[in-house]
Amino acid sequence: MLELRLVQGSLLKKVLDAIKDLVTDANFDCSESGFSLQAMDSSHVALVALLLRSDGFEHYRCDRNLSMGMNLTNMSKMLKCAGNDDIITIKADDGGDSVTFMFESPSQDKVSDFEMKLMDIDSEHLGIPETEYHAIVKMPSAEFARICRDLSTIGDTVVISVSKDGVKFSTSGDIGSANVVCRQNNSVDNKDNETVIEMNEPVSLTFALRYLNSFTKATTLSNTVTLSMSKELPVVVEYKIAEIGHIRFYLAPKIED
């Protein structure tokens, strides 16, 4: 038996909006520690890892580990029926073939339940090694989204270079080229507006902008985003989900032929 009650139901709606275009079907894994998901896009270039820790739920009951295969388009359709202020409860029976989403309005005067069929998904789980990253950039998530969107009007790929001077995003295409440099700044008033660069050694990697643009759909989940990079390794683009967990996107770099 599984019963997870999330008071801030809008978080789940936002999570689905952030991942449903990248991944079609995914297994949600439920254990004592939390509600999680790991899935790759169909071309195996990008991976999303979601964790909602059990202590972030108002009520969390998971009698045994459960993996529930869901079509994210259909799940998103159902969650769209929840109000932004609604409390969402996810319920499932062990070995059942469906999951129920229950939506309660804040004043408890409206309760809805939506039952969705589960599916068998043969998904591959990848081990992601713990890595010391050469450079970690924390910046406002809206700024990162803006840069990715702007540069994708010029080119298809972006070179992200971190040096002691800052982080540089560069692209080029048929009509020309563009560079955006963000320098480290410390905002006294608002930590969310800071750009903070931790660098052990300079790193420069090339990525497809269309994936980064897809990741930025998670911007509504967090005011800040963290980019972790090492030479010749996938970048990690992480959005913290207030008090409850994170969503991490991994993207394989492009390599010069």
Partner: peptide, 14 residues
């Protein structure tokens, strides 16, 4: 030109 690598190149199935 540049070519896109796969995540399978970096992460191993568990």
């Amino acid at each position: 030109g540049s070519s896109q690598t796969s995540l399978r190149h970096y992460f191993v199935a568990t």
